[in-house]
Amino acid sequence: MIFDPPILALLLAAAVSAVVAIAAALFAVRVLRHWDIRSGSALQIRLERRTYLVTTALKIVMVMQMAALALFVHNADRMAILFTGAMCALGTLNVNQWGMPAFLVQIGVFLTSAVWLLLNRADEMGRDYPFTRAKYAFLLLFAPLVVASAILQWLYFLNLDPNVITSCCSKLFTPEGSGLQADLSAMDPKLALIILFSGAGLLAALALFSSAGRWLHVMLGILGGLYFMLAIAAIISAIAPYIYETPNHHCPFCLLKPQYGFIGYLLYLPLFAATALMLGSGLLAALGAPKSLQQRLPAYQKRLNWSAAVLYLAFAGIALYTILRSHLILIG
């Protein structure tokens, strides 16, 4: 255990989030069993009033979780100096077996939070709260994720042993190694860049011009999720070397370091946000437009899609900028 204020802050945030998520999940069960918007019963009115509390608490928790993700990574990066062998956040995350899972689950929390907030927004537009059941059912998935994230973070931080010799990016993200990270690094940079740019362009175009089919829209959401992973892979295999200006450094975490002008945050933020918007929009399409939202929902989805398209283009633009700025030439 390392007594470090940022760690205490993260643990506090995780604990608070878990408590709120559990309370919200318990409330969700009640909503799923008793919610009846057409009834004016005392119970229904009580439930309705309580949704204000639960929604506000969740909004606070979700915003907190998004901030916590940034804090988590930033802190891991800074703590790298404490561990022999660690050069960036990755090394710190690898100090014990809980670090990486904690990080990945935290990303999951980020994305699901964002999707839930979008769903909530749509729900509150309809006079009969058309998505309430879906929203609270979704919470039953969200809550375990938050609790898991809290548990993993506690395990991770409590077991941080400064005497551990960890391995960092130069060992893991190398094409010669084995394992997922190595495979990601070994991806052909040309292919990676094609996927990255054409994917962003395609998704932006589809998002802008697919006001039509509902199932196409759902597909778009799925594609958004898929592209997220491909884009991360492309960053690892191609964009990262451009930023570091060395063909062999593939780390997706070093990008976040101050010496690269925090370019990583600039690169990841639009990608994460666009992905969340796409997933949210796709989920709404899958749920279908209820009667009370016949007009407003398509308009809302269109807004989401537009924002996603802009963000995808921003992501591609920033990626392009890093390539153009770089002195490295990977592909002739």
Binding site: P5, P6, L8, A9, L12, L53, A67
Partner: peptide, 21 residues
């Protein structure tokens, strides 16, 4: 920055949560 963000986390979270209900 990290220190200030941390400080904000540690103080504002308990306050906000305590006053929420």
């Amino acid at each position: 920055r990290l220190q200030l963000i941390t400080l904000a986390f540690i103080t504002i979270i308990p306050f906000t949560i305590a006053t929420l209900v």
